[in-house]
Every structure is written in structure tokens, then in C-alpha cells.
Design a protein around this nucleic acid. Structure first.
Lengths: 342, 342
DNA sequence: GTGAAAGCGCTAACAT
DNA sequence: ATGTTAGCGCTTTCAC
């Protein structure tokens, strides 16, 4: 039998209510008594019973808010499936999850969602941030003034007081891609990089990681110029066509951007889908389709489901059982998919 | 607020106890009343509150038994880490987990563990089975006569009444390896297969999947004879040396067996670690070391952690909240590891 | 500053 | 066959 708060109370010669106040630092306890209680709890290895706590809180349940940006993208829809699963588990256990979806990236809306969720009495908040000082300030305000823990997902917000980040190490993902490219292209060939908006730090990190590592692994391989595309298959197809015209001898392409389908279409059109090795990011339905058709050789995945599930789970475990997250940065596994292990 | 058993009771004009008996089919309720209660519960979308249930059962908590065979192997030690994590979560939630470890494969011991756990009052049992009729009978007995759900992990036991299996599709894992081999060896080369005990169905399935798929993908590649090794690095090193003598022109090796380190040692000794592509199974520390040193090019993983964690989680969710497993076969992802995404 | 007491939703033993 | 009741361990209000 696990140790209960009553046992702590008995050992300390006080009541359960006092133990509770002491352990939660809710004041109205003589400091020396509080100290003694904490020490005893520590010694006896006390951890509050989660079921009992959740049940006792039924009238005013643990509430977790989740804010998703770019919710319209297929990737975030994958994240949303993880969110839904976590929501079900939390609600089954007696908690609540409030979800706010934002189309595109919009710091203004994120901030108003944070305020709204705070006023709705959330006990913890998970969100997809953006590098914006006002969002950072808002997170710090939640942490410091409201004691509301915040978990960031997908992209981190540097220097903020969020308790934990769940997402990918993008530079490393680029290096993994380079490792695969190094393994599968012939000697002295030429490879190209296609990336997206220069202002997107995730894409930049991937591209940087790829180039850096490929130069080390395969000094014989020439990295052709980098092509930039919009998040639009029409554009990506056109740019790819242009690239194939300029570099007909290309043997490999690393795509750090979205709109991979357009690229594949160009490859089919020019009948080079079989001869050029393509490594792209994100395990989305449309990419998997091209993986199966053979235009894409490897897909690098970032566990969208985990990015949706874990932040909520971490917050719930923390709020329900005072168990903090293992690490401050929970980097998702870098998944390699071929047409055989989808 | 979720719907409670009291609300069902009110709606049906009976007491909570009757609702409980009706929903659990524990008899002592007039059949027509039971029917009515079930219908109302269904209509109102009633799901028992997990926290309340676990708490009410605190005196006689939900108990889950876990039997691991070959517990001495590094792979099963990875499984054990998943078991420990699940155990912590379950105990934090108010349940109990009993673990029995068996060295090697021993149906006799498995059976006596099952009996022991049944007599100790387990409410659910997870186990690593073996193709043995007595184990199958024991599982069916638990399911039918004791209403104790059983989950198999790592290897399944065909035709038994286990509610769910968590593990890998080994043939598919072999196919994934073939896909990678096809991607990275040169034209018209020769590759070899090294496998273990002929009586191990997992190894056979992997080998079969590999050969079948490589023939399809790369008809130009010649598959040299299959070498058999014992689970022993001394032996595997010797056999590999012999193989290199017989086939000095080999460019790729698929290892479906354990004792991969010995194979790598032979490759280092003959200075062919860089020129021969090696694909092996299981993300173990010793294999990862050789992946990093470059002797192994790809490791195929089978999510050991999940195989330990999920069976316990499935049983607990089932016992605590009457939520059955999603699918009857939960195939773990086939993980591809290179030295960059370990 | 501290303690007593009333639940949270459910189960199980007991009463009818 | 059905209802009543006493907890499970914790939180929270209220009284001292």
C-alpha cells in the first residue's frame, strides 16, 4: 500500500489539511511545521494518489488548454490526432481539455487565445508558439503570476519560462537526411536542395544540417545551388522543372520544404523519378503516396502524433500527480520511412 | 460534467447498486430491468469514471501480471524498461503490477508462473509466449474460466483466446531491410544472409521477407548462400570469416540473428567494414556501437519499449475503464536507425 | 495557524 | 431482486 497523506499527518502529529497546505505551499501553516511535514513526506516517499486527487477535484476539474497554429496544414492535422487521443484519456480520467485552432501563423490570435484560456481557468496550457516577444511575455506571465505551467510544441520559444518543449531537432533531421543521401547516391554526382520560405527557422535548420553533414560524409558529391519554393505545388513543380533544365545531371534532391507533391509531379513529367533519389520531410498522406509510387525514396518524420499527445499528457501528469516532465526538451524521434515501413 | 451512475439510476428508477450489477452482468437483477438500464446507459453515453473506480478498488486494487521470457537478453531488457514505465504509471493510478522474469525460453516455467499469478488474484496477464500447446490451453483457461484477459507480446500464439498481441511483423521487417539493401548496393553485386537457429520463427520470417523482397526489387543482385550462426559472438565471428573466404566479393550482408558484434569484429579484421553494407536487427547498445563505428549501416528496430509498455497499459485501460484494445494485433512500428538518428 | 467534515463517483458488503 | 451504507485518498470550506 502506498503511503497516504493521513500517514504523513499522523507522523507529523497534525491533520491532513495541514499536510496538504504545507505540501502545496498554500500558506497558513507555521513555517517550521511546514518544513517538518515536507521532510517527513520526502522520507516516507509520499506521492499523492492520482485517482483520489482527480476525484476530489471533480467539481472543479483539472483543465488543460491547447493552442494549435497552422491548424489547416496536414502536418498539424496529424498533431491534432495526438491531441484528440490525449483529450480522451484525460477526460476519461476526470480532466478537461480545451482546444483552440488558428489558421496560419498569427501571434495576435495566439495571444488572445492565451488570455481567453487563462480567464477560462485553465490549469495548464500547451501551445505552438512563434518567435514573437509578446508571446514570450505572455508565457512568462502565465508561469510567474498565474502559476500556470506552459508546454511548447513543434517549435520552441527561446529563453521563455515554458516548463518543457516537445518537438524535433530540425538540424539533426537534416543530418539524418544527409546520412541517407550519402548512402544511396553514386560517386562524384551532383545533388540539389529545395527549401521554402527563408524566414522559416525549421526549414533553415534542416537545410543547414543537411549541407553540413553531406559535405563531411561525401566530399566527392557536389551540392548544386539551393532552390526556393512557395508552399504551393504549382510553384514547386515549376521551380523543379527549371532546376532540371539547369542541372540535368542531378542525382539527388533534399526537400526541406512542403509542397513536395509538385516536385514529384515535375519528376514524373521529366521521367527522372526513378533515377533521382529524393529525400523529403513529413509523413503526410500525399508524401506517402509519392513514396509508394517511387518518386520519394525516404521520408523523414517528426512524430506529429507525439507532438500532440505528449504536451497534454505532461501537463496532466504534472497537475494530477505533481510529476514534472523528465527533460526540459523532449525531442521526438527522427523517423525514417521507406515505402516498406509506412 | 460527464454522466454518472447516479444519473443512470435516477433515469431508470433504480439504485446505483442495481445499475452497477446490470452493467457488469453480475446477476441478481431482473433481466428486463437490466436490459432497460443498459439501454439508458448507452443512450446517455455513460462511461464509468476511471478515477472513482480505481479509488473504490483501493482495498483490492487492479492487479496485472507480466511474464517475460529470455529476460537475460539485451532486447528483453529494453522491453523491461517499458514494463517499468507502465508499472509506475499504473501504480501511481492505484493499480499493481507483478513481474515474473524467466531466463531463456521455458514453457514449463511460463505455465507455473501463469498459475502462480492466477492464484495471486491477477485481474489481467501479459506474457511472452512460445508455440506450445500447454501455454495456449492455459491462456484459453484464463480467458474462459477465470475471465482474466491475456495480452501476448513479442511473439503471438496462434489461435489462442488472448485479447490482443503487441509485437512486430517480422516478415515485413525483413522486407524493409531488403528495401534498404536495394537502395544502397551497386548493380550486379552479391549479398549474403546470416541467420540464427532454424527453429526460431522470428528469424525465419525476417529472412524470408528479406529474400523475397530483394529478389523482386533487385533481380540483378545475387543472393549468396545463407549462413547459420549460434547466439554467440565467437561463433558468429568465425562463420563470418569463413563466409568472407568463400565469397570475397560480397557487398552486402543482412543479419537476422543476434550476435551481430562477432560479425562486425570479423569485418573489422578483414578490413571490409567500410565496403560491405550491413543491415542488422534490434537497436541494442552493442549494435548501436557498431552502427556508430560504421560496420553496421542500418539497424531495424522493433520498439522494445512499446512491447513492454503497451500490454500493461492495454490491460489497465480495459480493467479500469472497460475500454477494449483498438486492434487485436498491435504491430509495432518498424524503426530504421542510421548512425545519425539513434 | 489548525482541524473537522463534507463530498468527488464508484464498489462491495450488508440489509431488506 | 433491490436498496442502503461505508469507505477509497484527497481537496476544500468552514469553524475554531
Amino acid at each position: 500500500m502506498a503511503v497516504t497523506s493521513q500517514q504523513i499527518a499522523d507522523a507529523a502529529g497534525v491533520s491532513r489539511a495541514t499536510v496538504d497546505r504545507a505540501l502545496k505551499n498554500r500558506g497558513r501553516v507555521r513555517p517550521e511545521v511546514a518544513e517538518k511535514i515536507k521532510k517527513i513526506a520526502e522520507e516516507m516517499g509520499y506521492h499523492p494518489n492520482q485517482a483520489a486527487r482527480v476525484l476530489a477535484l471533480a467539481k472543479n476539474p483539472i483543465k488543460i488548454g491547447m493552442i494549435i497554429q497552422s491548424a489547416e496544414t496536414p502536418f498539424m492535422q496529424g498533431v491534432m490526432r495526438g491531441v484528440s487521443e490525449a483529450r480522451e484519456e484525460v477526460e476519461r480520467a476526470g480532466g478537461r481539455v480545451e482546444i483552440r485552432c488558428i489558421d496560419g501563423v498569427d501571434a495576435e490570435q495566439v495571444i488572445s487565445c492565451i488570455k481567453e484560456l487563462r480567464e477560462a481557468g485553465m490549469n495548464g496550457i500547451a501551445l505552438v508558439p512563434a518567435e514573437d516577444d509578446r508571446i514570450k511575455e505572455e508565457i512568462d506571465y502565465l508561469a510567474e503570476n498565474c502559476q500556470i505551467p506552459v508546454v511548447t510544441l513543434n517549435s520552441d520559444i527561446s529563453g521563455s519560462k515554458r516548463i518543457c518543449f516537445v518537438g524535433q531537432d530540425n538540424e539533426r533531421a537534416g543530418k539524418v537526411a544527409a546520412g541517407l543521401m550519402a548512402e544511396c547516391v553514386e560517386r562524384d554526382c551532383k545533388v540539389a536542395v529545395i527549401t521554402g520560405s527563408v524566414s522559416n527557422p525549421a526549414l533553415n535548420s534542416r537545410t543547414r544540417g543537411f549541407k553540413k553533414m553531406l559535405e563531411i560524409l561525401r566530399p566527392d558529391v557536389q551540392i548544386a545551388e539551393t532552390y526556393y519554393i512557395k508552399d504551393d505545388n504549382q510553384d514547386s513543380e515549376a521551380v523543379t522543372g527549371k532546376m532540371l533544365g539547369e542541372h540535368p545531371d542531378i542525382k539527388g534532391i533534399f526537400v526541406s520544404a512542403p509542397a513536395v507533391s509538385g516536385i514529384c509531379n515535375a519528376l514524373y513529367k521529366y521521367r527522372v523519378a526513378d533515377t533521382i533519389k529524393v529525400i523529403a520531410n513529413d509523413v503526410l498522406d500525399e508524401n506517402v503516396e509519392n513514396l509508394e509510387k517511387g518518386a520519394i525514396n525516404f521520408l523523414i518524420g517528426q512524430e506529429a502524433h507525439v507532438q500532440g499527445y505528449e504536451p497534454i499528457n505532461i501537463l496532466f501528469q504534472l497537475l494530477a500527480g505533481e510529476i514534472g516532465p523528465e527533460k526540459e526538451r523532449q525531442l521526438t524521434n527522427i523517423i525514417i520511412k521507406t515505402k516498406y515501413n509506412i
